[in-house]
Simulated scan of single mutants.
Amino acid sequence: MRTLLLMLFLPIYGFGQASQNDPPSRQVIQDSIPGTSIILKDGNILFKKAYASNLEKEALSDQLYTLLSLIKGFKPNDERYRAVDQITGRLSRHNINMNKYATSDILNKPINAMVLVQLKDLKYQVIVSEISFGETYTDSLKHELTRDVMLESYITEKKGSKLRSRKVYVKLAQILNQELTDLFDLQKSNLAAEF
């Protein structure tokens, strides 16, 4: 009987132990493209950039809210719930300036994304997540439809754990980085005269 129980529980005990070579279950997979604010974190592509300002938090919040309301396609979350330390919203159907860049095919499509702006005195951080491109296709009844294609499907490999390093993907990330950097920069905006 002991032998039977030992044979029954020994494999369960032996295989239930984690080896030292196993990664921890909460491991954060992170990769980035040098020279950009585009990062890969847990299989998601993020644009994460901090900006300096010479305004206090409340004045900075007002200026950023004005800037964001001027961005075509940006829709802030309900203003009644607007916090002083962060602004959230959605960037919908934003087109990249085609005259500014020699763009790739995917950047000709409108961008959709979630935007979070975190505020502190004299600085703010912009995090753009869930970046997708509106892709138009025709169904069998000749109806033109649009679906969102996530950026991760274009520039990641190895099941979303690594950014692709080929020149075309690096260029795509650099253009997207420059567009988003300029889009959320108070110093480069038309509001800079008010500083």
Score class of each variant (00 low, 15 high):
159 K>Y: 11
14 G>E: 01
136 T>Q: 14
66 T>Q: 13
35 G>P: 04
90 R>K: 14
75 K>S: 14
60 L>H: 05
100 K>P: 02
54 N>C: 03
153 S>R: 06
7 M>C: 09
186 L>I: 08
1 M>D: 08
131 I>R: 07
73 G>Q: 10
102 A>G: 01
146 T>A: 08
135 E>K: 11
24 P>V: 13
85 D>R: 06
42 D>I: 00
12 I>D: 02
155 I>E: 11
24 P>E: 12
8 L>F: 13
67 L>Q: 08
127 I>N: 13
85 D>L: 02
88 T>M: 06
159 K>V: 09
85 D>T: 14
193 A>W: 10
187 Q>L: 11
17 Q>H: 01
169 Y>F: 15
155 I>A: 05
194 E>M: 11
159 K>T: 08
192 A>T: 14
81 Y>E: 15
123 K>L: 10
33 I>Q: 03
143 H>S: 09
81 Y>N: 13
34 P>Q: 11
79 E>G: 01
16 G>P: 04
156 T>W: 06
30 Q>C: 08
27 Q>E: 11
23 P>A: 12
117 V>A: 06
134 G>F: 03
65 Y>H: 10
176 L>P: 05
65 Y>R: 10
162 K>S: 11
18 A>R: 11
76 P>H: 12
123 K>G: 05
81 Y>S: 14
30 Q>K: 14
81 Y>P: 00
60 L>N: 01
151 L>R: 05
111 I>L: 14
195 F>E: 10
7 M>A: 14
29 I>T: 01
69 S>P: 03
142 K>D: 14
191 L>K: 04
73 G>N: 09
176 L>N: 06
166 R>T: 14
124 Y>G: 03
109 K>I: 11
97 N>C: 12
98 M>Q: 15
96 I>E: 01
178 Q>I: 11
117 V>N: 03
164 R>A: 12
101 Y>F: 15
23 P>G: 09
60 L>Q: 04
137 Y>W: 12
94 H>Q: 10
33 I>P: 00
52 A>M: 06
168 V>M: 08
187 Q>D: 11
167 K>S: 14
43 G>N: 07
126 V>Q: 04
154 Y>I: 14
178 Q>K: 13
18 A>W: 02
175 I>M: 12
61 S>F: 01
151 L>D: 00
109 K>Q: 15
118 Q>W: 00
66 T>P: 02
50 A>T: 15
43 G>Q: 10
45 I>T: 06
50 A>R: 13
97 N>L: 13
116 L>G: 01
123 K>M: 12
106 I>D: 10
7 M>G: 08
176 L>A: 06
113 A>H: 09
127 I>Y: 00
89 G>Y: 00
157 E>K: 15
13 Y>F: 12
149 V>S: 05
3 T>Y: 03
115 V>Y: 02
51 Y>S: 01
68 L>E: 05
49 K>W: 04
87 I>A: 04
163 L>K: 07
167 K>V: 06
153 S>D: 09
78 D>E: 05
3 T>K: 12
133 F>A: 13
94 H>N: 12
172 L>D: 10
42 D>A: 03
25 S>P: 05
21 N>P: 00
115 V>D: 04
150 M>Y: 02
50 A>L: 08
